[in-house]
Design a protein around this nucleic acid. Structure first.
Lengths: 152, 152, 152, 152
DNA sequence: TTTT
DNA sequence: TTTT
C-alpha cells in the first residue's frame, strides 16, 4: 500500500473556540472549525459571490493543548494535515459521516489571547517539544528538526 | 473576504470509473473516488495497521472529459484542488453532507487506457487548451502559462 | 514529458520593496525577497538556533502591479508558485545561477500600505481580473473561477 | 520567530544516481537531482515549448539510505521538503550559491531496483522506523504516526 | 534584507 | 460559526 499522498493546507479563521477532550491515558484531542472563503464574479449577472467553506480541524495531545491555550474564535491559522473520513452514530441511531483534517503542522497567523504574535509547531508529540512558554512569552517551537549538527 | 487558503493535494488510485454528467449549456462534470493509504505500526501491539481514506473527486468541463477519456479504475493520479462541503437531499428526505475535492490541477501518474504515459493539466477551461491528442499520443498539456515570451 | 509537479508554498516577510520592471509590449515583472525562518534546539548544546532562508519571488503583469501597490518591506505574504532556475551573466562576465519562485497565486497576510487587510489573487492575467480597487478599498479578487454557474 | 511556511512539493525523475556521503558520527546524506517539466504553447509562434527544471534534492540518514537502496536514475519520486540556500567555496575560491530541497517526506512513484511498487517515508529518523524490508518486499513505511490508538 |  |  502507499505511494500515496494525502495533504491539506488551509489558512482560515476559527469559527468557534477549541473544544478539548481528555482521555484516561493522558492523551487529548482538540477540535475546532475554521472557515475559508472564496469569492468570484458571476459571469452572467456580474455580481460578486462569496462562499464560505467550513473545515473540521482535529489536533492531538501537546498540539491540542497549545491550540487551546493560544487560539480563540476569530483567530487566523495555517494548518497542514491529512483528510480523514470519520463515521459515527448520531443520536437518532443513524450513521453519520464527516470529513476531518487531522493536523500535522500549524502556524498561528494571529492570536487574540496573548501578545505573542505567532507560534509554529508540529502536531507530533515528539517534535512539539512543548516547554512551558517562558516569561518572554516565547512560544514553543518545533520545526521538524532534521538538523543534526553534522558538519556540512 | 479572503486572505484564506484552501488547498488539497492527493496522490491515489481510482476506486471506480469516472462518472460523467452533462449539462444543457454544454458544461460537464465528472466524479470519481480515489483512495489514499496510510500505514503505521501500532505502538501497543506492534502490529502493522493500514487505513484507507476515500476522497470524492470532482472535475469539470474539459478536464472532466480528459479524465473520462484516459482514466480507469485502479489508475494512479495526482490531484490538486479545494475542499468543498456539499449538502444534498437523500432519498429518505434527510439532508446529507459530503466533502468533495474540486480539482484545479491534475497529473496522470499511470493510465490503463492508452499508451501515453502522463498527462498534466489544469481544471480551468481557458488553461486546459485541449487540443485532440495527436497521433503521437501526446496528451494535452496545460501548465498554467504565465509564460508570455517576454525577453528576460 | 510531464506527469511532474513543481510547487512551492511560502509564508514569509518581505525583506525589501517590490522592484518593478516594465517591458515594451506592456508586460511587467516584479521581484522581491521574502524570508522564512526555522528554529530548533541544538541537541548537543541545548541552545536555540534560528535560521533564515531568503527566497527570490517573481510576479508578473497584473499580479506584479498589485503587489507593488499594496506590499511593503516587512509585510507578510503567502505565495504559491513554481521553482525556476535562472541563469544570467554577472558583471564580471561569469555565468551566475539563481533559483526563483515564479508566483502563481498569492494572499496578503498583512500589508502596511492600505487599510485593506488582505488580498487574494492569482498570477495569471486572465484570472486576476484586476478592476481598479474601488473606493470601498476592496481589493481585486481572483479565485480561479472554475465556477461557471451551472445548476448543480 | 516564525509564523512562516517553507514548503516544496515535487514530482519528477532522477537525473542521476543517489550520491551518498557518510559522516563520522554515523550520519549520512544523500544527494540527487530531479527534473520537472513544464510545457506550454507559445502564443506568438503557436509552437509547443518544453522546459526542464532541475532541483537539488538532499536526504539524510535513514531516508538517504532508503533512497540509495531503491532509487535509480530515471525513477519517479514525490518529494516534500523545504527550500534551503547553501553557500560554498568553489574550486576557484569564489563563493557559490545553490538552492536545495531538504527532504522531509517522500514517496517512490516508480523504482527500477526492486519489484516493490512504492515506498512512502519520512525524513525524520525517529519517524522513518526503518525496519529491514521484509521478504514480502514491503518497503519501510513511515507515515507520521500521530496515531496513538486512543479510543475515538 | 524580514519577522518574533 | 470566521473573516473582509
Amino acid at each position: 500500500m502507499s505511494g500515496t499522498l494525502n495533504k491539506v493546507m488551509l489558512i482560515g479563521h476559527l469559527g468557534d473556540e477549541v473544544k478539548m477532550h481528555y482521555f484516561d491515558g493522558g492523551g487529548s484531542i482538540g477540535r475546532f472549525p475554521i472557515a475559508t472563503n472564496e469569492s468570484y464574479t458571476n459571469k452572467q449577472t456580474g455580481e460578486r459571490v462569496t462562499n464560505t467553506d467550513w473545515h473540521n480541524i482535529v489536533v492531538r495531545n501537546k498540539a491540542a493543548e497549545i491550540c487551546e491555550k493560544y487560539l480563540s474564535k476569530g483567530d487566523k491559522i495555517y494548518v497542514e494535515g491529512r483528510l480523514k473520513n470519520r463515521q459515527w452514530q448520531g443520536e437518532d441511531g443513524n450513521t453519520r459521516y464527516s470529513t476531518e483534517v487531522q493536523v500535522q503542522e500549524f502556524t498561528f497567523l494571529s492570536t487574540k489571547k496573548e501578545s505573542m504574535a505567532n507560534a509554529q509547531t508540529n502536531a507530533q508529540p515528539q517534535q512539539t517539544q512543548v516547554q512551558k512558554p517562558a516569561a518572554t512569552n516565547e512560544i514553543p517551537q518545533a520545526t521538524p528538526t532534521e538538523e543534526d549538527d553534522l558538519p556540512f
